[in-house]
C-alpha cells in the first residue's frame, strides 16, 4: 500500500529577493551587474572563442555520430556490406534502402554471396542515432565524424552507395582530450 497523500509536503517555499527600494533595491540593481562584470573583465585577455566557420571547422568528439561511411576490406578492397538489410530493419527513421544482388565470379563486389546493389541513406530523414552501425553484423556501415551535408536540393541528400563508400571531401577535426 502506498502512503496516503499528504498535501502539506507539496508546498514549496519560494525564496524571494529583497523588496525594491532602499538599500536592498540598490543591491539588486548593481550587485548582480558587478558580479557579471567580474566574469567579463576576468576573460578580457583571452582570445575570442568563436570558430570562423566555414574557414575553420568546429572539431567534434571522437564518438560524434555524423555522416555514415560504408567500409571496404583493406586487403582485398571488397565491400564489407553484404546487403543483408539488417540496418534497414534497425533504422527507426526508415531512411535506409538496400537492394541486394548476387555476386558473380566476374563481378565480385563483396566477400559473401550477396552484395548491396543499391544502398541509399536519406539524410533528410536520418536522425543519426547509430542503430545501423550497431545492427550491422559486418561493421560495414559506420557513423563518421563529418557533419557538413547541407545542400540545395532534398534529392541530393539521398546518399548513394558511391557517396557513402567515398571519404568526405574534407576531414572534420577532432577535439583533443579535455578540450
Amino acid at each position: 500500500m502506498p502512503e496516503p497523500h499528504t498535501p502539506i509536503d507539496d508546498v514549496i517555499t519560494v525564496q524571494r529577493g529583497p523588496e525594491p527600494g532602499g538599500l536592498g533595491g540598490a543591491y539588486r540593481a548593481f550587485g548582480a551587474t558587478l558580479r557579471g562584470l567580474r566574469t567579463t573583465l576576468g576573460r578580457v585577455a583571452e582570445k575570442p572563442p568563436t570558430y570562423q566557420y566555414p574557414e575553420e571547422k568546429t572539431p567534434v568528439y571522437p564518438r560524434f555520430r555524423g555522416r555514415h561511411k560504408l567500409q571496404r576490406f583493406e586487403d582485398t578492397g571488397l565491400e564489407k556490406c553484404v546487403g543483408c538489410s539488417l540496418c534497414v530493419a534497425a533504422c527507426p527513421a526508415e531512411c535506409i534502402r538496400v537492394v541486394a544482388a548476387e555476386n558473380t565470379p566476374d563481378n565480385q563486389v563483396s566477400a559473401g554471396e550477396r552484395y548491396a546493389a543499391v544502398y541509399e541513406i536519406n539524410m533528410t530523414r536520418c536522425i543519426f542515432c547509430g542503430y545501423c552501425e550497431v545492427a550491422c553484423p559486418f561493421d560495414a556501415i559506420t557513423m563518421g565524424n563529418d557533419y557538413e551535408m547541407a545542400d540545395y536540393h532534398r534529392s541530393d541528400l539521398i546518399f548513394t552507395k558511391e557517396m557513402l563508400l567515398a571519404d568526405a571531401i574534407e576531414k572534420t577535426p577532432l577535439r583533443r582530450e579535455g578540450e
Partner: peptide, 9 residues
C-alpha cells in the same frame, strides 16, 4: 527471388 528483398522490405 534470391536476394531480392527481406521480409521487412
Amino acid at each position: 527471388y534470391r536476394f531480392r528483398a527481406r521480409p521487412w522490405d
